[in-house]
């Protein structure tokens, strides 16, 4: 199965019976990646900017190879992949700070964080789009980390 999650976990070629038994889930996971990284209705967030956020989040999860893979599609936004960049050069500091908090400090997100995006002129639909991108990556990066441990545990 040619999916980002399986390839990143080193299970692209011989995934084993357990993964084969859940093949439908891995195909749907790949479809979900398409929906957040390359949607037709991308709103305010271009495919390149989405790739940059994905690269940044992958690095926050210590997934350097996958981060580089996402960053290759990030065009002019590629520098945002580096967590030290705050987005100010692109006028995105509020959005970048929000994405960082949702990715790495979820439990402390409050109503004020959403209100801050609204005050910066971000529409509600674009706020939902940001959350879906961030939330999907939280899932996929954990699937990758878990699969890698499973593969080694049964090696």
């Amino acid at each position: 199965m040619n999916t980002t999650a399986l390839k990143s976990a080193g299970l692209g070629n011989a995934p084993g019976d357990a993964v084969e038994g859940r093949a439908k889930i891995f195909k749907m996971t790949q479809a979900a990646e398409e929906a957040v990284l390359r949607p037709q209705d991308y709103g305010r967030w271009s495919h390149e900017l989405r790739a940059a956020f994905a690269a940044r989040i992958a690095l926050q999860y210590d997934e350097r190879a996958l981060s580089d893979q996402y960053a290759a599609s990030a065009g002019a936004f590629a520098s945002l992949a580096e967590p030290s960049q705050d987005g100010a050069d692109d006028g995105l500091e509020t959005v970048v700070a929000f994405m960082d908090k949702v990715a790495t400090d979820t439990r402390n997100v409050t109503a004020a964080d959403i209100a801050g995006l609204q005050a910066a002129g971000i529409s509600d639909a674009d706020i939902v789009r940001l959350c879906e991108l961030n939330a999907f990556l939280a899932y996929q990066l954990r699937v990758i980390a878990g699969l890698r441990l499973m593969k080694d545990g049964y090696a």
Binding site: R107, I114, A138, Y139, Q140, G146
Partner: peptide
């Protein structure tokens, strides 16, 4: 192994769900 895979998937899935439920509402 099949049970462990389901545990990886179900706990990872809530990394996703929590980032919608806990962020977009209260």
């Amino acid at each position: 192994e099949a049970e462990i895979l389901d545990l990886i998937l179900s706990s990872a899935l809530f990394g996703w769900a929590n980032r919608l439920m806990h962020v977009l509402g209260e």
